[in-house]
Simulated assay, not measured.
Amino acid sequence: MTYVIVHALAPIFVIMLLGFFAGKAKMVDNKNVSLLNIFVMDFALPAALFSATVQTPWEGIVKQSPMSVVLVLAMWITYAAIYFLATKVFKKSPQDAAVLTLTVALPNYAALGLPILGSVLGEGPSTSLSVAVSIACGSVLMTPFCLMILEREKARAAGEAAGSTLAMLPVLMWRSLKKPIVWGPLLGVILSAIGIRMPDLLLSSIKPLGMSATAAALFLTGVILSARKLKINTVVCTATITKLLIQPFIAWGIVMALGLSGPIAITAILMIALSAGFFGVVFGNRFGVQSPDAEAVLLLSSVLSILSLPLFISLTSGM
């Protein structure tokens, strides 16, 4: 099992290392990655998420609803707790806290979901469906929180708004919904729900763009990291422990409370137990927000998940 996990993590580190090398060697300007960021955030990732959600049968999404409830609650609880700690205890700015919390709360479904789940439950349509639903839950029900905070602080810095967050909420929601990274997967879910099937020609046309999404995002993350000096501190340690241990046990508690068992319960816990995702770091860079803590958590959790994932795979084996 450790071999499977290392095998799944290897591409992540290799692609990030290539981006890191490209930035250090000045093959890519690691101080100005706006063009690469636009490609990842406005084209590649939205295409990948739209393809994943629009091709997911609505009946399958409904059957996966118990798992979705566990994932969403575990992510929301973690997001709220880390954001509170980051802003109230560690005195981080709202922007920095938003990037950090999204990095911690949203697991790396896109890169690790299929290989890890496939190795435990076997590869097949149901496994692919579970991963697609997990990605949809994260992109539609998690990322807007981060985007709204980033948009709010951007508006306040520009002097466009000085009211409360509640008063600004309609504007912030609209600005978030206009982002391709949000409306792409949301549109896919809506089309799936009403039974509209996309033409094969359209799906095959955007498939290469979607296939490049994870690699491009990881390469971009490596480039971003090449311009930073990573430091391990209390915030990073707290966030990493939360991601790898506390959040999966939160999911476990929700699974027990809902009385779930079998593949659905195993899937929900293992999806949450994955290492931190790269969305937070990429989102922050899109808004000019640098979060060294989020970057450190991304790397540290990816390395330490080699130890934590076998633990939860073993613990869930009897469910």
Rank of each mutant, 00 (worst) to 15 (best):
A158E: 14
V133N: 03
A193R: 03
G138F: 04
L203N: 09
C137V: 11
I135E: 00
A157S: 12
V131P: 04
K207L: 09
D200T: 10
L112A: 11
V131K: 07
P180Q: 06
V140W: 02
K178V: 06
G159P: 10
L191Q: 00
E153Q: 15
I149P: 05
L121A: 03
L203W: 04
L172M: 10
R197I: 10
A161K: 13
L141F: 07
I206R: 12
K179R: 14
L187V: 09
S134V: 04
I116H: 04
I206G: 05
S128K: 12
M142G: 02
A162Y: 02
P185A: 13
R152K: 13
S130I: 06
M168L: 14
L150C: 04
I149H: 02
V133L: 02
P180Y: 00
L150S: 00
M148C: 15
M148Q: 11
L177T: 08
L147F: 03
L117N: 02
S134F: 03
P144V: 07
G113S: 06
V189A: 08
W174E: 14
S205W: 10
V120Y: 14
K178R: 15
K178M: 11
C146L: 04
L147S: 08
M173E: 00
T143M: 10
G122D: 10
S164F: 02
L187C: 08
E153S: 12
S130F: 09
L203D: 02
S176D: 08
L129S: 08
L114D: 01
A158W: 04
M198D: 04
A193Y: 13
P208K: 08
I149K: 02
K179Q: 15
M168T: 12
G122Y: 15
S205G: 10
P208L: 05
L187W: 01
L114R: 06
G195P: 06
K154Y: 00
G210N: 04
P199A: 05
G138C: 09
P125S: 01
S126N: 12
S119W: 10
I116T: 03
L191A: 05
G163C: 09
R197T: 15
V140L: 05
R197F: 11
V120L: 08
L191W: 13
G210P: 00
I181W: 00
M173R: 09
P144M: 04
